[in-house]
Design a protein around this nucleic acid. Structure first.
Lengths: 147, 147
DNA sequence: TTCATAATTAAGAATATATCCTATCTAAAA
DNA sequence: TTTTAGATAGGATATATTCTTAATTATGAA
């Protein structure tokens, strides 16, 4: 979706490149994602597609969003959203998260903790915690990928 | 749970302080949280409590974990775990998240992006993204709290 | 243009996670 | 002890997501 400067490719070109058919439903979802503000849940998209495709199913929306995410057109805000996970370590720390197997590794990063807050944050509200997530592929998953 | 130096208070003292009864189920869950490694889901806890309380219900586990979280004994790894939310902004950016209303505000933070990776990260795996989440209460929710 | 085919879809069933309801029980204060 | 607000078990319910299947359709090849 929204990418800097780059000349905007047409939806059909994008779909062709990643090997997805240009169905009307898919084109509509693509367009909505380009228009919509904020960080929509699947249901938000579903509600909007239904205006033009009243009989579209939840499944189509979910599937399409997953495909788009898989091909890097959109991202999930969080990678561990399937179920609630608790942290029993109450000391300030950050996480390395494997986006493949969801493994989490705790670590501290004092140098980063010391960076002063960016401009304008205070006008959004009060900040109570600064959390960093390093996202990547863990050692185990890297090995698997090679085998 | 795991807190630095501080002299470990007994579970009963902790419960007294926050106004929760010291029931056997609750004591057991507390103990499990202190023993368990990693970042358990509710179901992980449920499976372990069942070894000593075979008839305990999911509800008790969920309720207890929520209470513990509310009183700051444990934390959720993520605050938006109820449903998947997508990000259509594919430019590198970070988030301010209101832990009360779940509002998300995008922002960039170049100074933070420049901080060199901490020691030892490379041995965990390959890092592909550095994501920062500033967690707090947004302006709107702060106002509501006062009214 | 027509055709063949694999991809896609709608619809509803199925699954997974989380919460609610209510009768019963119990920890803890008096 | 007795009292009672808080806690629990178990089942029902809600919500989010994925699966199954039969029908449809976009796309490349003829």
């Amino acid at each position: 979706m929204k990418k800097d400067n780059k000349p905007a490719a047409s939806p059909r070109e994008v779909f062709k490149r990643i090997g997805l058919r240009a169905t009307p439903q898919r084109l509509e979802i693509y367009e909505i994602l380009n228009e919509i503000d904020g960080h929509p849940a699947s249901e938000d998209i579903y509600e909007r597609v239904r205006k033009r495709f009243p009989s579209i199913s939840f499944d189509t929306v979910y599937r399409t969003l997953s495909q788009f995410e898989k091909h890097g057109l959109i991202k999930k805000v969080h990678h561990l959203a399937d179920k609630t996970r608790y942290d029993t370590n109450m000391m300030h720390h950050h996480h390395f998260v494997c986006v493949r197997c969801k493994k989490i590794i705790d670590f501290t990063w004092e140098e980063l903790d010391r960076v002063p807050m960016p401009e304008g944050v205070s006008q959004w509200g009060s900040v109570e915690d600064r959390y960093v997530e390093l996202r990547g592929i863990c050692r185990d998953c890297l090995k698997e990928g090679k085998e």
